[in-house]
Simulated assay, not measured.
Amino acid sequence: MVYQPRMRKRVNAYPIRRAPDGSAFQKCERCGRSVAIALADMHECESNNSLKKLKRPRQSGNVKSQNIEDQPRSAFRFFMEELLDIHKEENEIAIDSKGFEMWKKMSKQARQPYLVKAEKVNSAHTKALLEEENDMSWVK
């Protein structure tokens, strides 16, 4: 059996558009931003300037750093952290599976302390976020 030679497709390779200096970017005459030449026809100067930007106040040296303890967590996460503290020497994977089974079998009254802890941390985190949002100023 004889194979027929394949017809090769002719590909028109257009040269990449370049700025006069040879780069693939050029500065916009209106806004002065560097724009890719391939995307220059889609560039809109007015829309870029009209967007509102969120301006954060400058942070001073006495800013409180955020700890992992301040992050919101679920009641199950609190339970697992306590379980890991109790069983430090055991295999973590075995502790995870054991903890999951214990959590499923646990009654609502036994889960209550963890739910209270989680709600307390989550509400404090939400309050901190709202305070941070109120401290920010919007600038045109």
Rank of each mutant, 00 (worst) to 15 (best):
Q71G: 07
E92F: 06
K55I: 06
A118F: 07
F79T: 01
I86D: 00
G99F: 00
K140D: 15
R56A: 09
A40W: 10
H125R: 12
Q112I: 08
P72L: 14
Y14F: 14
A118N: 09
D135N: 14
I86G: 01
L83R: 01
R111C: 02
S50D: 11
I86C: 01
A19M: 07
A40L: 12
D41R: 05
I95N: 00
K108R: 15
N62E: 12
P5N: 10
M136E: 10
G22K: 01
V139C: 04
Q59D: 08
E131G: 14
R111W: 02
K140T: 13
S107M: 02
W138T: 08
N122T: 15
I16V: 13
F25R: 03
M106T: 03
K127A: 12
R10E: 08
N48Y: 04
M102L: 04
F79V: 01
E44Q: 12
K108I: 09
A38T: 14
K64C: 06
D70L: 12
A38S: 13
S97D: 03
I37Y: 07
E44K: 09
D135V: 14
M7T: 13
R6E: 13
A110K: 01
R8L: 09
L54Q: 09
V35W: 03
R8P: 06
A19V: 07
E69D: 05
Q109Y: 10
A19S: 13
M42F: 11
H43Q: 10
D41W: 06
R33V: 03
H125A: 13
K88V: 05
H87W: 00
R73E: 06
R10A: 08
E81H: 00
K27R: 11
R77I: 12
L84C: 03
G99H: 00
M106A: 03
I93C: 01
I37H: 08
A24L: 08
A118Y: 07
A40I: 14
R56P: 04
F25C: 04
A13H: 11
E131D: 13
W103P: 02
K52S: 14
Y114T: 04
L51Q: 09
I86A: 01
V2T: 04
R58Q: 15
N91Y: 01
H87G: 01
D85T: 04
S23M: 06
R77A: 09
R73S: 05
K27L: 09
